[in-house]
Amino acid sequence: MDKRWLQQQVLERLAADLLLTEQAALTAHETATHEENIAENKYDTLGLEAAYLATGQARRAEAIRQAIAAWQQFRPRAHDDTLGIQVGAAVCLVDAQDRRQWVFLGPPGGSMKLECRGQPIQVISADAPLGRALLGKCVGDDISTEIEPHRLQFEVLQAT
């Protein structure tokens, strides 16, 4: 599993999300401040609603910038069996129905699905319920986590 490639894919996706979010914030700001949207009475709230939307989009853009900074500083290391699964691990899990899934444990803000050489990979952070359950586990360990409304159980098949 090429962790540097995965990191680059996360950064590219975050950069694209940031661009869209900044454009949405700009559009909402322009709508909020446009002269045609000045409230004529207390029921005329288009400008106010656009201002709330612009604020929300600006907050989202800042969160994405923070995620980009965390992912740029992130240096995935080789898995160390003595430490168990840590941030930076790529982990293959298997469930009771013998379905396998790959998870890449990274910094906050990069939760997404990617594909590497035809293999789907779920990128999660250590703050996610599954991420917390994985920390410190080793190959062969069973993990269980609750993601409402389901209880998920896996065995750690491989960690790199």
Score class of each variant (00 low, 15 high):
Met1Asn: 10
Met1Val: 14
Asp2Ala: 06
Arg4Cys: 00
Trp5Ala: 15
Gln8Met: 11
Gln8Ala: 14
Gln9Arg: 14
Glu12Phe: 09
Arg13Trp: 06
Arg13Ala: 12
Leu14Gln: 02
Asp17Trp: 08
Asp17Pro: 01
Leu18Lys: 01
Leu18Ile: 03
Leu19Glu: 10
Gln23Met: 08
Gln23Trp: 01
Ala25Cys: 04
Leu26Ala: 13
Leu26Thr: 10
Leu26Tyr: 01
Ala28Val: 06
His29Ile: 02
Thr31Tyr: 00
Thr31Arg: 15
Ala32Pro: 03
Thr33Pro: 00
Thr33His: 09
His34Glu: 03
Glu36Lys: 15
Glu36Cys: 10
Glu36Ala: 13
Asn37Arg: 08
Asn37Thr: 06
Ile38Asn: 04
Asn41His: 14
Lys42Asp: 13
Lys42Thr: 06
Tyr43Gln: 12
Tyr43Cys: 00
Leu46Thr: 14
Gly47Val: 09
Leu48Asn: 05
Leu48Gln: 12
Ala51Arg: 13
Leu53Ile: 06
Ala54Ile: 02
Thr55Glu: 11
Thr55His: 10
Gly56Met: 09
Gln57Trp: 08
Gln57Ser: 07
Arg60His: 12
Ala61Cys: 03
Ala63Arg: 11
Ala67Asn: 03
Ala67Trp: 01
Ala70Ile: 04
Ala70Val: 07
Ala70Gly: 09
Trp71Pro: 00
Asp81Ala: 15
Asp81Pro: 11
Thr82Gly: 01
Gly84Ile: 09
Gly84Trp: 06
Gly84Pro: 02
Gln86Ser: 14
Gln86Ile: 10
Val87Trp: 03
Ala89Phe: 02
Cys92Phe: 09
Leu93Phe: 06
Asp95Ser: 09
Ala96Leu: 13
Arg99Leu: 13
Arg99Thr: 13
Arg100Gly: 01
Arg100Leu: 07
Gln101Lys: 12
Trp102Asn: 05
Phe104Trp: 13
Phe104His: 00
Pro107Thr: 15
Gly109Ala: 07
Gly110Tyr: 01
Ser111Ala: 14
Met112Leu: 12
Met112Ser: 08
Lys113Ala: 11
Arg117Lys: 14
Arg117Asp: 15
Gly118Glu: 04
Gln119Tyr: 07
Ile121Pro: 00
Ile121Val: 15
Val123Asp: 03
Ser125Val: 05
Asp127Ser: 11
Leu130Ser: 04
Leu130Cys: 05
Arg132Cys: 04
Ala133Trp: 01
Ala133Asp: 02
Val139Asp: 03
Val139Ala: 10
Gly140Val: 10
Ser144Ala: 12
Glu146Pro: 00
Ile147Asp: 03
Ile147Ala: 06
Glu148Thr: 14
Pro149Gly: 06
His150Leu: 12
His150Phe: 14
Arg151Pro: 01
Phe154His: 07
Phe154Val: 06
Val156Ser: 04
